[in-house]
Design a protein around this nucleic acid. Sequence first.
RNA 1: CGGGCCGUAGCUCAGUCUGGUUAGAGCGCCGGGUUGUGGUCCCGGAGGUCGGGGGUUCAAAUCCCCUCGGUCCGCCCA
Length: 420
Amino acid sequence: MVEQFQAPKGTHDILPPESYRWVKLVASFAQVMNRAGYGLVQSPMFEDVGVFQRLGEGTEVVRKEMYDFYDKGDRHLALRPEGTASVVRAFNQYQPTTPWKVWYVTPCFRYEEPQAGRFRQHHQVGAEAVGSADPDLDVEVIATQHDFYQSLGLSSLSLRLNSMGSADDRRTYTEHLAGWLNQRLDDLDEADRLNVAAHPLRVLDSKRERTVQATADVPCITDFLCADAAEHFSRVQAGLQALGVAYEVDTRLVRGLDYYTYSTWEFAAGGLSSAQNAVGGGGRYDGLAESLGGKRVSGVGFGAGIERILLAADAESALEDASANLDVFVVDITGGDVGRDITFELRRHGISADRAFGGRSMKAQMKVADRSGARLALLVGPDEHAQGMVTLRYLRSEAAQISLSRVGLAQQLVAVLAQN
RNA sequence: CGGGCCGUAGCUCAGUCUGGUUAGAGCGCCGGGUUGUGGUCCCGGAGGUCGGGGGUUCAAAUCCCCUCGGUCCGCCCA
């Protein structure tokens, strides 16, 4: 008995018809991003582990979820846990003119226990605008992400927005927050106390009842913004308002990655439980390029989880009709030569066409034709073959079947398809 | 890393508590319902070492132990 393999823990195969939704989603994303002047970037799925370690030693992703390994040359590499670091690494490497506006679609890997909406390999679409600190780019990126969700028909999303201020602001606030929390350690949930020393910002993100109550009047990051950061935040908000992108300022919004400064945001799906309702988030990052050995430039971008988006789409019945939409199915019971030739003739004229294989009976072939979802069936039997004709049968209506000449078949079908 | 649930036909599951004839259903698949025609209907068929191993027993899908896998919750994230 040979061992039967299955997809590794936390991974999944995306098969038809589900994969049609992926094609549609990615196509929508590509269209929205290209229209905004963003170009596709394809970078390696693995990098030197150091690229990802710069995401911050305090992050879960780096501390315990990294999918790292040593290759045959003893290089320490890691599969990407998120998209931004690779893009910034590439920016440093090629130094393109700025702002460098790019988008990507990629698998992401995190070694963790899988559950609903969480995998060891998941997929993200994302975009980055690197090399400019202009707050209008924050606006553009957020609004474009918003428009992407809209293009999928998602309507129950909410956007939370915050500002972490400059790197100095962030540091000052973090220290102040740590002190504030330390004086109230006993009031916090036990599980959150460890974070106070290691990662005080994370405590703000806690959903534990006790901690939430104890930090109800916690100092706000927005009270610690320098003049420049405050001005930036204000312009971002004005821009979103002008573009009709609804948002809510949430001064407790803390995201999982350490590198964010200035704007940070997260889109949540109303239809999903809070454990996995985040369908995408992003922020501005001032120190990342420099920490990866590049110049001191700022960037802003987001990542959005495809699986999460599809879950959200399920919850509000969006993105459902995404099937193949075959035009014609060819049925040939004369041996297959005619069916083979007609199928290719149609395809070469831009008509989507499929056929049955295996030399089965007409009844069997018709069943396959029906299941294919095709609008029309073309039947070729001995009679049609002898007369140089084919029979056109309508699979989605009650119209009577008709005969068409084999000569100029594709042109005739183009006309038929146009009027149905 | 802590905890719950579940592994029986391709899929969804019943049967397990109260061991006992050839292990079932629905859907799907294949074939047929006279001469070459799908979707409804009818008939027939293929398909399962009951996750794996060990134990108890005259007898195990069913009871016990071990093990592997899946799934979900917490935490955290996409």
